[in-house]
C-alpha cells in the first residue's frame, strides 16, 4: 500500500496556520506556497500529499478515506459525529460555542424556546441535556440577525472575540463548549499507515 499520507486541510486562515505547523514539523511541501492552478500538492521526500477543502468538508474526506488525516474544528466534529479518530487537540483556532441573545432572552416560559443556528445537532443535544423544549430554526449564515428581527429568541453559534455580538447588542448567555482545531484520522488509514500517521501526530504534539 502507498505509504504517502494524504492530508486534507481547511481552506483559509486555519489551514494556513496548520500548514505552517506541519512545515515546522518537517512535513512541508514547497508547492503549497506557489499553488498556481494545482489542487493537490505532493512532497515525495516528506511522504505527504496536501489538498485544501471547505472546512466543513474535511471530516467527510477523512471519514471516506479520500484523505488519511485532516484538521477539522471541534464544532464540525460535534455537529456531524464523523466516524474518525481524533488524535490531537492542536490548540489553535480557539473559540467557543455559545447561546447568545439579548439579556434574559433565554429565560422565556410558556412556549418552546426558538433557537436559530447552523449547528442544529449541537443545539438539540445541549437543550436535550437541559430537558428544555426548543423550536430549532436552521440557518446557513448571518445567524446574529435572527434575534434582532424576531425570528428567534436566541442563537447557538461560534464566538471568537464577541465583537460582532456586541456591535449588534447581543450577549453571550451560556457557554456550551470550547472549540479548537483537531487532528483527525481515517480509522483504516490509521491502521495501515500507523507508523507514518502516529509520527506526524507526535511531531505536531511537540509543537502545540
Amino acid at each position: 500500500m502507498d505509504q504517502t499520507v494524504g492530508i486534507a486541510l481547511p481552506k483559509g486562515r486555519l489551514g494556513d496556520k496548520v500548514y505552517g505547523l506541519l512545515d515546522m514539523a518537517g512535513y512541508g511541501c514547497p508547492q503549497v506556497l506557489d499553488p498556481g492552478r494545482r489542487l493537490i500538492f505532493e512532497s515525495k521526500e516528506n511522504g505527504v500529499r496536501f489538498f485544501f477543502v471547505k472546512p466543513s468538508d474535511v471530516a467527510i474526506y477523512v471519514q471516506r478515506g479520500a484523505a488519511d488525516i485532516g484538521v477539522a474544528g471541534k464544532d464540525i466534529l460535534l455537529e456531524y459525529s464523523p466516524d474518525v479518530y481524533e488524535l490531537l487537540d492542536l490548540n489553535i483556532g480557539r473559540c467557543r460555542m455559545c447561546v447568545c441573545g439579548t439579556d434574559g432572552s433565554n429565560e422565556i416560559s410558556g412556549r418552546p424556546l426558538r433557537v436559530a443556528t447552523k449547528f442544529t445537532n449541537i443545539a438539540k443535544e445541549y437543550y436535550s441535556g437541559l430537558s428544555r423544549d426548543i423550536d430549532i430554526i436552521h440557518l446557513n449564515g448571518s445567524i446574529e440577525l435572527a434575534p434582532l428581527l424576531g425570528l428567534a429568541d436566541v442563537i447557538v453559534d461560534i464566538v471568537e472575540t464577541g465583537a460582532t455580538l456586541r456591535e449588534n447588542g447581543l450577549l453571550e448567555l451560556e457557554k456550551i463548549t470550547d472549540i479548537s482545531a483537531r487532528l483527525i484520522s481515517n480509522k483504516v488509514s490509521y491502521k495501515f499507515k500507523y507508523a507514518a500517521i502516529s509520527r506526524i501526530a507526535e511531531k505536531l504534539a511537540e509543537l502545540v
Binding site: 500500500m1 471519514q63 471516506r64 466516524d83 481515517n186 480509522k187 483504516v188 488509514s189 491502521k191 495501515f192
Partner: peptide
C-alpha cells in the same frame, strides 16, 4: 477487520 483500500471496517 479491515482491508487496504476500503475506508471502513
Amino acid at each position: 477487520g479491515y482491508i487496504a483500500g476500503v475506508s471502513s471496517a
